[in-house]
Each structure stands twice: as structure tokens, then as C-alpha cells.
Design a protein around this nucleic acid. Structure first.
Lengths: 217, 217, 217, 217
DNA sequence: GATGAATGAGGCTTCATTCAT
DNA sequence: AATGAATGAAGCCTCATTCAT
């Protein structure tokens, strides 16, 4: 919140930063190679510490993964409620804002990394997957559902099944960014985050809005 | 200890079926536990043969995975062109048919399994991922793109960017089935494949069609 | 002894020839890759039969090796005594004849192969090595020892320790052919079997003969 | 079951010595059983460490073998040149010195072990065999050749083909020590290194020297 | 606290041998 | 008798985790 302008020197390694550095390193390597194929020694090297030191902060490789997920969840869990509260505005405007933010974040590979890993490892860490689901997915879905329901109540949207309609909001983002990153699809200009969001928003809004409402935006 | 006299044959000689049995077993276990966490011995046991026998048909665990993907790709690659050719019909009708077929297939965990695994292991098998992408994803996207473009040319659809619009067709399916299976979301009745497809189709078609076209379906 | 001139057609595979064909194949492969690195399947393929068939003639890979050694030993064991009996001639002439025969044989890689393998595998097949030693090495040494002793008795040679002098007869052959084949030493013309034997004989005879005997040969 | 209280350290930390200890253990076992028949676990046990520890120092069993050869080669490659330089002396004296040193070394099973293994495994490690040949065999042969040529130039020796004559120097050593060790030949007193060298030298020198030179030594 | 040497269970793979066909 | 599919013991190697220094 308060950026004093004096950038924290990267080289100052402080003990309390270590766990986070380990998690950063892990995130990078897990995203690159998957959980099983990532060696603790590699994590240590990437974090600039020794293998043994890793075990000072985390009791096992699995715990690193759990902490990684929990670290990512924490801020999301806190901020999510804002989404619902802020919805005093026009539903269409709100939805566009949400989509834009989401697209911006998901177009960053580092942000996409964790959801991807969780998806990958869900079967091996069922409880963690459930935690992620409840803390992140359910909240996001819940928030979007609420936005849609409010839009329906306000008369902005047609009376659709809000819970199912959420798939039409989230899905195209998934298809674009997840497949895009995983398979390297459509790296051309036409697929820039911006133009994609324009297209998605255009189609989605027409699909949700009442016919007489006229053009979206 | 107790020999009843009825000799149980240690194994059957059934070379022709074995490779497929191994692949079936592998698909099941890979889907369940991922590639790395699946032991060759488990595959063998699941296939009802010995560890060593697996290596008569596949030279390594990786080759099993590759064969699995190729086996799944083959029929898809053949049938895909049909999709484009059949499109003499009304674009809306065609699109609904496609969505219904896709939903039916994807709601079967066994069908969804392979795409899931490919997604999971893409970073560890980059070439295989690219093969899958070209043979399956690109074709599917291409076919859908063609349907949309024909719809635009016929005046059924608004002039949208067909390539990007494809995300709005595929994405909700992904969100529904992939996340649904992975995280166990929404197992309630409201989320039946049928009702989801109705919802998806309704929103999607309104988003694509010209306003004056009237109600979809 | 009786060569009728009608060469046995190679392509006529008869059951009674099989064991020898297996041994031929084994000799070739053992010489090439060693005992451990040679697979029974490779032997079978080389012999033009199936893996199972090999086990009809030999009960194990070790037995193949044993048979190989015994097959090679048999004729040697029979012929060796001749060497001692023939020694009515001049010791120098006899020794030269022996050296020439030995050099001719050892310059053929196929002949050298078995001694090489026996040397290689001696520690893994101690009994076989002892059999080989007694049947081949001891006899050869014994025969040469006898030749030398007779030479001394006749006054052709100086009174040397015959048993130790045998090393001076055999050793250079070993050095030339064994090292030559194993390490590919001296493939030039100067190292032809013939010129080597001339050199060896020249040096050896001068070493053994009485000074006053004059030039050898 | 019975904890006496005196904690036995599971291992010592001794990284610097370990590689050599592993090589020593490997040499012993390779010499005894051959490369293929020696298990990494056996090497580890012989070296007093665990299987895994071996892999801290060598990335594979093959690398152990390579290191073994290189370790043995290094000092030889350095010292060999001395042999040629020292040859200010009488050729006969020099040759006897060389033979005596060689015999002393080769009569030690531990010294003979490596050449034996290299000979055994030459076909499986062709590059290593060539390295050994160039670094050890070619140098030794070259040095001996030089001694002989100098002897000829000085008028000590007859004009023989030096390159081929080298076989008469080396060969008897090979026959005596290599066969002796491999097949357990002549363990009697008559075959002591000393008496063998006397015999070999006696026969060899007479073979090389000019008739009028008189008795060797 | 930090380090990295050491451990050892566990996985992949090979291949001699067996035996149903 | 021949075949080659199947077995399974055994070996190489990996790597998460421990712990002496």
C-alpha cells in the first residue's frame, strides 16, 4: 500500500525471507517440471540455499507444496469478499472489470502456474485440492454467481441459471490461457489478452443480456 | 500347499490383445495417480500380467504413455474432417449437435482421462503435447472455427472473430467437466450434462446470433 | 581324412547339427561381447533358431560356455601327443614347425577367440578354467618342454630350465596375437604373422642354442 | 534390541578419501569377478559405504571403471619417459633393470589386476581400451623399442627388427604372470619371479646379443 | 543455524529360464 | 519338436530425508 520508493535490495538475504524464497523457487520448478520431477536439491539451489536448509522451514516436499497453495490462497480468500460488496455498479461494467482483472492476471505465467500445478496434482493431494477448491474456486464461482444473480435481479440480465452461467464466464478464460500456455496455442497478435477479452466480453454479454438492452458496453 | 490337481495356467498366451490391455490399465492408473506416481508393476497387475511382460510390448513407461496418446489420437484424427463436411445444416443446429456430442463424451471420466493426463504431463513430454495439440486440439478448434465462419457467411451469426469465439464454445465445456471432475464440483442434479448443455447453448447462441434472429432453438 | 569332395550344403539344417551351430553362434558373440553381455536370444537368432530351441540342447547359458570349451579342447587333447612323438627331427626344425603352425592358427581371430574368452571368464568359471588349463595349456607347455629337453639332451640347446624357457616360446606369440587383436596393435605389414615368426624364431633360437652351433636354420 | 547407549556413528564424513576408496574396492572386485559380475552394492560394502554414496562420486558403474583406468594410467604416463632418458647405460644392464622392475610389479596381483581387467573388458569399452593402449602399452613398447635400437646402434645387440623384438621382451612376462595368475600355473619354487627373470634374461640376451659378445651380464 | 555427505527404500529395466500352445 | 510369450529375480540408479560436522 505504501510504496516509499526505496526498493528493497535483492541481495539482502534475511532469515525470515527464506521460506518465501523456497516457495518461489518451488513454484517455478513445480510449474516447469511438475511436483514429482522436481528435486528438493533443485529447489534449494534455485532458492540459493542448501538442501538441508530447506528442511529447516518445511518438513517435507509435500509440505512445501501445501504451503505454496496456502500462500496463494490466503490473499485471495481475503480479497474475494470485496468483489461481492463492490457490486453496487452496473452488472455489465462490473463483469467487464472482473474479466479484465482476471485476464491480466492469468496472462502472467507466474500467476497461472499455481492453478495449473494444483490441477496437475489434484489426484495426488486430494485434500489440498479440496482446500484450493473451497478457498479459491468456490469463492470465485460464488462471487461471479452473485454478480450474475444481482444482474438478473436488477433486470440487466436475462433469467439464466446463474450457477451454470458462471461456466460461460470462466470457461473461455480457461480455454484461452490454460490451453494457450500449456500447448502454446495462438501466439499471434489476434490472441492478445486484450483482444481476447473484448471478444469474450462481447459474446458473453450478448448471451446474458436481454435482447432489448441493446449493445453491450 | 494343497494341490487340488486342477492346474491353474500361470498365464494365457494372448499376444494380440495384450498391448491394448496394457494401455487400458495404464490409462486408468495414469488418470488416477498421474504418470510419475504410477508404477509399471501396478500397470502390469491391473492388466493381469507380470511386470516383465509389459516390456515385451513397450520398451519403457514413457513409450506406454506415447502409445496411449497415439491410440487416442488416431480415431479422432480420422473422424474430425466429417465435422466440417457435415455442415450443410443450419449453423445453430450443427453447433448444438456438436456441443451435445462433446458433452456426452466428456461427461464420461474415461474419455476425459486422456486429455487430463496430457494436460498434466505436457511439460514433461513436450513433443507429445505438441502432437496431441496438432492432432486433436488444433483440429477441433479448426472445425469449430469453420462452423462459426460458415454461420457468419450464411448470416446466422454476427460477424465475430471466429478464432476467438471458439474459446466461448470450448471453454465452458472445459470449466464444467474438467474442473468438475478434478475438484468434484457441483455433483448436484442442476449440473447434469444435459442441463449444463442447455444453459451453455442458450447463452452461447444468444451471444453469437444476430439480435433480430429471435430466440435460439 | 577322407574328403570326398562333395561339400555339405550349408542350407541343410539337420537336427544333429544344431548344437554345433549354437556353439558357433555363441563363440562369435562371446568373443565379441563377453559372456555376460551376450543374450541367449542373440545366440538363438545368430544360430537361426528360437530361444526355446537353445534350451533343448543346452540346459543353461553356462552349459553352452562349458560345451564350447570342451568342444575346443577335445581335438587338441587328441592331437597333442603327436607333437611329442614326432620329435625325431632336429629340435630347431621341430620348434620352427610348431611356431609356424601356432602362428598360423593364432592369427585367425576365430581360433584366438576361445582362449581369449576363457581368459576373460576364468574367474567366473574356475573349474572350467582349470579344465582348459589342464587339457590345453598344460599339454602345450608339456609338449614344448619336452621338445626343449630333447634338444638339450641331443646337444642342440644349451642346458636351460626347460619349464621356464617355454615362456620364451609361448610368450611372444601371446604378446603379438592376443594384444594385437585386443588392442589393435601394429596392423602394418611389418607385423605380418610371417615376419613376426621369423623375428621370434631368430631371437628365440639364438637364445636357446649353443654359441658354437652357429646360425639357426 | 539391546541399546548399549554408546552411539555408533552411522557414517563418517570423509569426502576427500571416498573416491579412492571406492576405486580400491572396485579394483579388487573387478579383478576377482569381472566388471559385469560385480554389483555396485558389493563395491559399496567393500568400501564401507552405502550403495547411494557411491553415486555421489561416480555417476555410473562404467564411470567407476573409467576412473580406475585413468587413475592407473596417470602415473605411468608421467614416469614412462624416464625409461628412455635413463638409457645412458649399457643396453644389457638397462634391459635387465627394466625386466626386474617389471617382474617385481607384475608379480603383485594388485598391479596385474588392472591390465587383466582392461584386457577382459576391452571389447565392451573400446574407447577406454584404446586410451589404455596409447597411454600404457604404446609407451611401454616404445620405450623398450628405443632401448633395443640404442643397443643396436651401440653395437651391443645384433641388428634385429626392434619393434618385433619387443614381443620377445614382453611376451614371456605376460605368459608367466598373466597365465600364472589366471590359471594358477606353476606355483612351485622353480617359478619364483626371480628365477623366471634369470631364465628369461638369459635366453633373451643371448637371442639379442652378438655371438662374440660373450656371456650376458 | 547451515551444510552436504550418507542412507536406503523404491522404481525402472533386463534377461535367463520356463512352459502353454 | 519348436516357438516365443510370460515370469520374476536381480541389478542399476534416484532422491527424499537424516544427521555428523
Amino acid at each position: 500500500m505504501m510504496d516509499t520508493g526505496q526498493s528493497e535490495p535483492k541481495w539482502r538475504r534475511r532469515a525470515e525471507d527464506r521460506p518465501d524464497e523456497v516457495l518461489d523457487a518451488s513454484l517455478k520448478l513445480f510449474a516447469q517440471n511438475g511436483f514429482a520431477a522436481t528435486k528438493v536439491e533443485d529447489i534449494a539451489t534455485e532458492a540459493g540455499i542448501s538442501k538441508g536448509a530447506v528442511y529447516r522451514y518445511f518438513s517435507s516436499k509435500e509440505e512445501i507444496f501445501e504451503s505454496l497453495v496456502k500462500r496463494a490462497i490466503a490473499p485471495i480468500a481475503e480479497r474475494t469478499e470485496d468483489l461481492a460488496r463492490t457490486s453496487h455498479e452496473d452488472s455489465a461494467v462490473l463483469l467487464k472489470a472482473v474479466l479484465t482483472v482476471a485476464a491480466t492476471k492469468l496472462s502472467d505465467p507466474d500467476t497461472l502456474a499455481l492453478p495449473r500445478i494444483v490441477l496437475q496434482e489434484a489426484s495426488r493431494f486430494p485434500e489440498l485440492a479440496q482446500t484450493y477448491r473451497r478457498q479459491v474456486i468456490d469463492r470465485a464461482i460464488g462471487a461471479l454467481e452473485l454478480i450474475i444473480e444481482k444482474g438478473i435481479a436488477r433486470g440487466d440480465f436475462r433469467p439464466v441459471n446463474a450457477r451454470l452461467a458462471v461456466r460461460n464466464v470462466i470457461g473461455p478464460l480457461l480455454a484461452h490461457f490454460l490451453l494457450g500456455q500449456t500447448f502454446g496455442i495462438d501466439r499471434e497478435a489476434s490472441a492478445s489478452p486484450h483482444s481476447f477479452i473484448e471478444s469474450h466480453y462481447d459474446i458473453l454479454m450478448r448471451g446474458l443480456m436481454k435482447p432489448e438492452t441493446g449493445e453491450p458496453q
